[in-house]
Simulated scan of single mutants.
Amino acid sequence: MNDTPGWASPGSAPSDSQEAGVPQPSAPTDGNGNAGNWSPTQPPAGQWSPPSIPGPGHGAPPPAPGWGSRPQGSGWGQPPAAKPGVIPLRPLGVGEILDGAVSAMRAHWRTVLGITLTVSVIAQIAIILVQRYLLPEPATVDPNATGTEALRQAADSARSTLISSAPSTLITLIATLFTTAMLTVVISRSVLGRSVTLSEAWSEARPRLLQLLGLTLLLALMAAGIMAVGVLPGALIGSTAGVGLILIGFMAACVVVIWLMVRFCLASPALMLERQSITVSMRRSAKLVRGSWWRMFGILLLTWLLTLIVTLIIAIPFGIIAMIVDGDGLSTFLTGESTGFGWPFLIISGIGEVIISTITYPLSAGVMALLYVDQRIRREALDLELARAAGLPGYDTRS
């Protein structure tokens, strides 16, 4: 059985002659919409071969420079790999993944900006309205309370914070789903050097949104369940020893959650680009990440740090301006009394959040999609399929 799915662009469907659940490459098109030459079948894993060089007089063009041996980069006697889009078609370094994500944002800035700005504005308006009209008053905490009263107030404060953050978290989750789905389509096209409009990205991402939501909720429930198992024994004890057990269980649960999240980090692009089910996408992610967990963890951590830096650079000035403009917000910050925030604070801080989302959403989605492409190039020679899809000379047939 062939367990190595081919490159399936969003919107393509498995061939009727192939096994169910194994997506096959869709026929690439040129700029005029004409179908290119792409083999309807894919050889099993490990049987990839470079395109043959025809003898004199056959008239077929030779392979593009640097292909066949799948070079790692340029060097003495080694031409650079072909680059039809934002990345060279070979195994990528960390810098090339980040540069590819930024290059995709720049090359398709109209589509990317249209996606992120639209979703971010709608999400922030919803969050502002929820914060202004629906959230309950925060619990008051007496700094002089001790013993049982202090524990009760701390529990009330934690519960109030959880309730207050739940609507915003849910709205942000939905916004992230929309942007991730459509931006993954944009990135997959940019790898081949093709453009995609906002309407095209939406039409191709829309059929996968419910499955992507199911995948996200499943991963969130897994994380929540693991955290609950970690802290529940200590919470049941309730004494000083219980507090120590809660801390130990929490740390152990965090390690397990991080391990699982990295293991399944490629499930979303697999679901989008291979048209897989939720469970199959998770298995595909585990297979692609196997043996590269630490590398994936390092790249994801670096991406998170970059997005955190961007967030702080933008959020801090906007937060200060918002508190200055809103007198109630400034008094709340200085006195520590929770009196709520007014419209000026919510609007100005919301503008800052829109700017943050417009920058960080494409970066995160681009890194995830390119990590998926990179792992498939390393493990499944996807670069050869991408070369055929991009219409590079010499890759219209297999030897």
Rank of each mutant, 00 (worst) to 15 (best):
residue 157 S to T: 00
residue 157 S to H: 01
residue 157 S to R: 05
residue 158 A to H: 02
residue 159 R to W: 00
residue 159 R to I: 01
residue 161 T to V: 02
residue 163 I to K: 02
residue 166 A to I: 01
residue 167 P to E: 05
residue 167 P to S: 01
residue 168 S to H: 08
residue 168 S to N: 06
residue 168 S to G: 15
residue 170 L to I: 12
residue 171 I to F: 09
residue 171 I to A: 04
residue 171 I to S: 05
residue 174 I to A: 13
residue 174 I to S: 04
residue 174 I to H: 03
residue 175 A to G: 15
residue 175 A to C: 11
residue 176 T to L: 14
residue 176 T to F: 13
residue 177 L to Y: 05
residue 177 L to T: 04
residue 178 F to Q: 09
residue 178 F to M: 12
residue 181 A to T: 07
residue 184 T to E: 02
residue 184 T to F: 02
residue 187 I to K: 09
residue 188 S to H: 08
residue 188 S to M: 01
residue 188 S to D: 13
residue 189 R to V: 02
residue 189 R to I: 08
residue 190 S to V: 01
residue 191 V to R: 02
residue 196 V to R: 11
residue 197 T to N: 06
residue 197 T to C: 04
residue 198 L to C: 08
residue 199 S to L: 02
residue 199 S to V: 04
residue 199 S to G: 05
residue 200 E to W: 06
residue 203 S to E: 13
residue 208 R to M: 08
residue 209 L to W: 13
residue 210 L to P: 01
residue 211 Q to M: 11
residue 212 L to A: 13
residue 215 L to W: 08
residue 218 L to N: 10
residue 218 L to I: 10
residue 220 A to V: 07
residue 221 L to G: 09
residue 223 A to S: 12
residue 224 A to P: 00
residue 225 G to T: 03
residue 226 I to N: 05
residue 226 I to F: 11
residue 227 M to T: 15
residue 227 M to H: 13
residue 227 M to S: 14
residue 227 M to W: 15
residue 228 A to Q: 11
residue 228 A to R: 11
residue 229 V to S: 10
residue 231 V to I: 15
residue 233 P to G: 09
residue 233 P to S: 08
residue 234 G to S: 09
residue 234 G to Q: 07
residue 235 A to F: 07
residue 235 A to V: 04
residue 236 L to H: 07
residue 243 V to Q: 04
residue 244 G to W: 08
residue 246 I to W: 00
residue 246 I to T: 00
residue 247 L to N: 00
residue 249 G to A: 06
residue 249 G to W: 07
residue 251 M to D: 07
residue 252 A to V: 12
residue 253 A to E: 07
residue 254 C to H: 02
residue 256 V to L: 15
residue 256 V to W: 01
residue 257 V to W: 14
residue 257 V to R: 08
residue 258 I to W: 13
residue 258 I to S: 10
residue 260 L to A: 14
